[in-house]
Nucleic acid binder design. Structure first.
Lengths: 339, 339
DNA sequence: GTGAAAGCGCTAACAG
DNA sequence: CTGTTAGCGCTTTCAC
């Protein structure tokens, strides 16, 4: 009889070792660990042997046999972004309550990297994946074909894939009502890739409020600090008639604060700013930022829940987004005076 | 001959299907996909068949056979904390360059959860893990016994496990020199669990500067916003003779800013503040915060590199930590006058 | 209740 | 170069 002893890491203890040590068949050991019908007496014996041998069932063996991988895959554009970190935290919290491991990948908002990570997920036999998609609908065809349960979060690039969204349109509308109430008319929207829905909501709400949307005031940046800063600074310098900005993400909001500071544009005196996402620093910022808040953790938690929930077909859910007024917006003053 | 057609997700395409379709043996297909010696002609044939069948090798099968899991596990206390998010980003970046998936778990700085996640990693046959440890040395015994390659990051609870650390002692020393240079004597250190090395460095540096360390001025908080705020506010209210604080993490720094604001303690006029970690909002804060900066991404990247690097035994590395002076510190004024 | 045996998809000998 | 075969650790009929 072979006992494992400290330092004998030669071979992993397997179900066979336990069976042998307990004097039972492997099937019985399996039943003990996966809740099959076993007599109390045998269960005790097996558990004792397992403990003695420091046995852990191998997820690899089980998954291979069951032709599934278990666990959930998570794809986000950038884990250092407060919103996505919150989303990831929600997914992790939900997964933990199910005892499922989470494999995460960052796409950098780059369709090519996304495609690559999707491939990895398929190879891993991952069978559920929560993703903030960045590529087009076609990108997800292989995953769907492979039978993965995919749930989109925040964005939704295919109607046949359920998602957890936030009511950004409503958030934008509220923000715009607030801004126009303060007298602002020349309002810009600073967007990132994949925010077309927000941009559409912006122009819609604008026209609903009787303001002609100026295409020049809708600008796009890539998902990097550099790009965000460059675009923000460019906007501020080229359009001095601007009196308010809505930033589509906290990265963009950060860029506006920095660029404004650099260009000696005072917030909220010269420029009003509303940004997406109530990250912790919004309150610490000078001035504290008025934000369109979305429940990041909830989005992640619900998405993971949808992914994990067996059985019935998941449905798309939309969570609310609301305005939190702080001190970054003020009444409109004479346009263009700050240059 | 069975062709897969859209919607026929009955069974995953296996190496056997490809072998059959290409008219070769399974071993040959395996060789094609894992770089064995194959004639160009056969390779073409196999690749064509694989493409036609939309074949992806199963990592499950491969890993089971090779008795390893591949990929790397990552354990951090809190993914929404800017520093750990940066660390995770570094790990993910490195892992991506090796084509390895990363499974992440958050421990909430709770040894019990940590133990549980370590168990999960073992069951997953994970063979490398990068962790910011929160429990004691014993906690890691099962992982080590199971033959996992573990690399610690930021903290190090066992001498026999290599780690990637930052030179916090030097950072604390520099910060203290700066503070004492400004005339401060009653300086507090706000710490979290696992920051004993920093606390030690703090008292050492203090005595080296000829200041008697006051044990009451070293306070500990748990890793939650609530706990951090409560402890910060308590400190501020109980010790009005305090003129400077070093916060051991950005969570703690945030709490001090908020608590000071609430208690009408002005920074830097009434209170000087230096916090650990140069998170993006440190610059946006009012006032911009002087920080002890540590290269979060690098720590993660190097740790992942150590974990992934085969062969020679990894050695512990220490990365620099430096002071970035901004506007949250000022000369000491009459103590206690702000209460 | 319990054991024996057949694979899950793949790779590593070992022959040819 | 290439095919055959024997498992990796586990679950799951199917007998007993």
């Amino acid at each position: 009889m072979v006992e494992s002893f400290p330092g004998a890491r030669s071979r992993r203890t397997t179900i066979k070792d336990v069976a042998e040590a307990a004097g039972v068949g492997v099937a019985t050991v399996s039943r003990v660990f996966s809740g099959g019908p076993v007599s109390d007496e045998t269960r005790e014996k097996v558990l004792a042997a397992a403990a003695r041998l420091d046995y852990r069932p191998s997820a690899l063996g089980r998954n291979l046999r069951q032709r599934r991988r278990g666990g959930i895959g998570l794809l986000v554009p950038d884990i250092t972004d407060g919103f996505y970190a919150g989303l990831a935290d929600g997914v992790l919290a939900c997964a933990r309550s199910y005892g499922e491991p989470v494999t995460v990948g960052v796409t950098g908002d780059d369709p090519e990297q996304e495609a690559e990570m999707i491939g990895t997920m398929i190879e891993q036999s991952m069978d559920r994946i929560v993703a903030v998609p960045t590529g087009d609908a076609e990108m997800w065809a292989p995953a769907l074909r492979a039978g993965l349960e995919v749930i989109f979060a925040e964005r939704r690039v295919r109607p046949d894939v359920p998602g957890v969204l936030t009511d950004d349109a409503s958030g934008v509308r509220t923000a715009l009502e607030y801004l126009t109430g303060l007298g602002h008319r020349r309002i810009a929207f600073l967007a990132q890739r994949g925010q077309s829905r927000r941009v559409a909501a912006f122009t819609d709400a604008l026209t609903a409020l009787g303001i002609q949307a100026d295409p020049e005031l809708i600008v796009h940046a890539r998902a990097s600090r550099d790009s965000a800063y460059a675009v923000a600074a460019g906007l501020l310098q080229s359009r001095t008639d601007l009196t308010a900005i809505i930033a589509g993400s906290n990265l963009l909001g950060e860029a506006v604060v920095l660029a404004a500071r650099e260009l000696a544009v005072r917030i909220p005196r010269d420029l009003s700013l509303i940004m997406f996402d109530d990250v912790p620093w919004a309150e610490l910022c000078s001035p504290p930022l008025t934000v369109i808040a979305r429940p990041a953790q909830d989005v992640g938690y619900r998405a993971a829940e949808l992914a994990l929930r067996q059985g019935r077909r998941p449905k798309t859910v939309t969570l609310p987004a609301g305005l939190i007024v702080r001190a970054s917006c003020g009444p409109r003053r004479a346009a263009g005076y700050w240059r």
